[in-house]
Design a protein around this nucleic acid. Structure first.
Lengths: 212, 212
DNA sequence: ACCTGAACACCGTTCAAGT
DNA sequence: ACCTGAACACCGTTCAAGT
């Protein structure tokens, strides 16, 4: 049966995979189920991700790390690469939400970036454990590093401490979302508003401590 | 063939599972492979974890969160429960490394706890993504909360801010290890010494900012 | 109580084949 | 180039059976 013959692309595959992950969890994502959702035989996916599920996972990690939120809708940015470190790289700018905010003071810029990053991680929280063991290179990554580096330099940190401060801020954002997701469904879980308030509280403390 | 007939226990299963995870990654852990490693038919595991792999994962998460380091050797503490919120709970004290340090100043106590927690997470980094979506209740958890709560109260935080500070510190520790593991194998990865230095740098900043 | 062994539905992946 | 369909080795889990 020549059922389907068009429409498949890396981006469509990734987006559909994220739908499945959001609905049934990471463990609920199988190549066969993904094929069904795309109205295609599972094996068709291998034409776009020749190295299979591992490559798809890397691409999803790159996509999550690189996607941006536009007027309430989450969408990707250009054709994401597979991010498996073998020649391709993902497209898309990491910290889009801070565009055009160059004249704000350093701590304000970092706060905007951190809150945007947190929101993105939260939007794809089902894929969070994918980020645990993968840090695929994306082109937006460079922009992020530049942004953070400039801000922390402006804050007066020494050359040695700037990269450490960048790592610290990244770690806090990732860890905060992980901590929140981890406690979802427990009886001591906090609601979304308090989670955001808690994140801001810690972020403010962190930036205060880093600049001292 | 009545090959094997003794020795299986929840703890032995978990420890062996962690061996496999350390060697072949989380994806390399299968019930059949775990059975082989335990010299037992895979189905024997279901007698100790009747709800299957998901329950085993919960137990591993509880174990990792609850294990302690004794004179260089990492070992579990008593028979860990399955942590799936259906009546059982894990044994073991969370923050053992800080035992007998009650007379130190609050920031010293928190630093000791954080460094011990980080070390434990790092020792079981292969199971890190298991902690992403699971926060099983352990008995040691209560002790940890008490320890952190007392320290942050002593630091002068308001009643509203103390739990937020606890969450922040937890998030930072988890995120820091995740961030490090995530970048392992990348060309911009730092070595173990610098990773520790970076962790301490961020921790100091965090505690400074929280007490301000 | 503790473990085995066969069975079932599902999985990732390869490969030859279709258009 | 893009997709199908059959095949293979593996997986989680159930269930009846052994001791």
């Amino acid at each position: 049966m020549s059922r389907n013959y068009a429409g498949l692309s890396r981006e469509r595959i990734i987006v559909e995979a994220l739908h499945i992950i959001a609905g049934r969890g990471l463990g609920g994502l199988s190549m066969r189920r993904l094929g069904d959702a795309l109205d295609v035989e599972a094996m068709a996916i291998y034409h776009h991700f020749p190295k299979g599920k591992e490559q798809l996972f890397n691409a999803i990690a790159a996509y999550v790390t690189t996607a941006r939120v536009v007027s309430g809708l989450t969408e990707g940015q250009g054709p994401p690469g597979d991010g498996d470190g073998e020649g391709e790289e993902a497209t898309g700018a990491h910290p889009v939400a801070v565009a055009g905010a160059d004249d704000l003071p350093w701590d304000r810029r970092l706060t905007l970036w951190a809150e945007a990053y947190r929101e993105r991680l939260l939007a794809y929280s089902g894929a969070l454990s994918l980020l645990m063991h993968r840090a695929p290179h994306t082109v937006g990554e460079e922009d992020t590093r530049a942004l953070l580096h400039a801000a922390f330099t402006e804050a007066g940190l020494s050359e040695d401490d700037v990269p450490r401060a960048c790592d610290t801020l990244n770690a806090y954002c990732l860890g905060s979302v992980a901590h929140q997701v981890r406690h979802e469904g427990r009886e001591d879980a906090v609601d979304a508003a308090e989670a955001l308030a808690g994140f801001r509280f810690g972020l403010r403390a962190l930036l205060t401590g880093l600049s001292g």
